[in-house]
Design a protein around this nucleic acid. Structure first.
Lengths: 137, 137
DNA sequence: CCAAACTGTAACAATTTTAATAACAATAAA
DNA sequence: TTTATTGTTATTAAAATTGTTACAGTTTGG
């Protein structure tokens, strides 16, 4: 996973969650994240592909949630931004003539699956609504 | 955390675990990892600082475990290689004039602590001895 | 005592990954 | 029919990671 994608996606979703059915432009979102609108649109593309967000083109267009933040779990976000295991393998192929080198990646694969699963379960306990409630004073 | 450090450290520790009180040179270890001895020594430095491994300089020197692999947990390794949260923050400082931007990093900090903790607990269930037992045929 | 085999460490180069920027066709609203 | 906006691609810039080289210091064995 690209480490900061989770943070960026949760930030975007929190804004959408609090804007209640209004179309938010990538420009406004980028202003809150202090980054570039094109980058925001790239992140939004993943959220749209996963069906959490819908977009509207043209003037006064933007993005909004497709469902209640009560029905969106942070584990959903994790699943969307997760491309690989949380932990990474060594960049080089280990030596196949060594008993450890031969099997280490297989052994790690199993362990990494369990770690990913533990994180998933943890995030399953929090909804987007619960998370974004922290931002209303 | 630098993603692959965990994998590399576990690989090194598995080799040390199986070599039973023999001094293993960084050259041998690098051969199994298929990487550079200096890089291995850098990883070893962290494991030594943490007290899991001891080094012997000079001819016929090398590294070995300071205690039984039955008393080393994968969570120990995690703690050593973990420099930051598993998940990262957005690279830019969010906009402090936005309710979400103002508090998002604080909110994520709490969440990220919980995630790290969940991974730690998971890894606490496995010893180095259990893990490296997979490599003896 | 000397040569050889190591560690430990620092500095630097190369590579890879990530983020930022720019550009533009397509679309919809006013 | 002008303006604001998405969606998308390409490109550049920046940052992070990994690899390499070098060498002083240490220990062993002849």
């Amino acid at each position: 996973m690209v480490k900061s994608k989770f943070a960026i996606s949760v930030h975007i979703l929190s804004l959408l969650s609090l804007s209640e059915s209004e179309w938010l432009s990538s420009d406004i979102i980028a202003g809150s994240l202090n980054t570039n609108p094109a980058l925001v649109r790239k992140e939004l593309a993943a959220l749209k592909e996963a069906g959490l967000v819908e977009g509207k083109e043209g003037k006064n267009g933007g993005s909004r949630l497709t469902k209640s933040p009560n029905n969106i779990y942070l584990s959903d976000v994790f699943q969307i931004v997760k491309e690989n295991h949380i932990f990474g393998f060594s960049p080089n192929l280990p030596n196949p003539d060594c008993p450890v080198g031969r099997d280490i990646n297989g052994a790690l694969e199993g362990l990494f699956d369990e770690i990913d699963q533990a994180v998933f379960e943890k995030l399953k306990h929090t909804t987007l609504a619960q998370f974004s409630a922290q931002f209303v004073s």
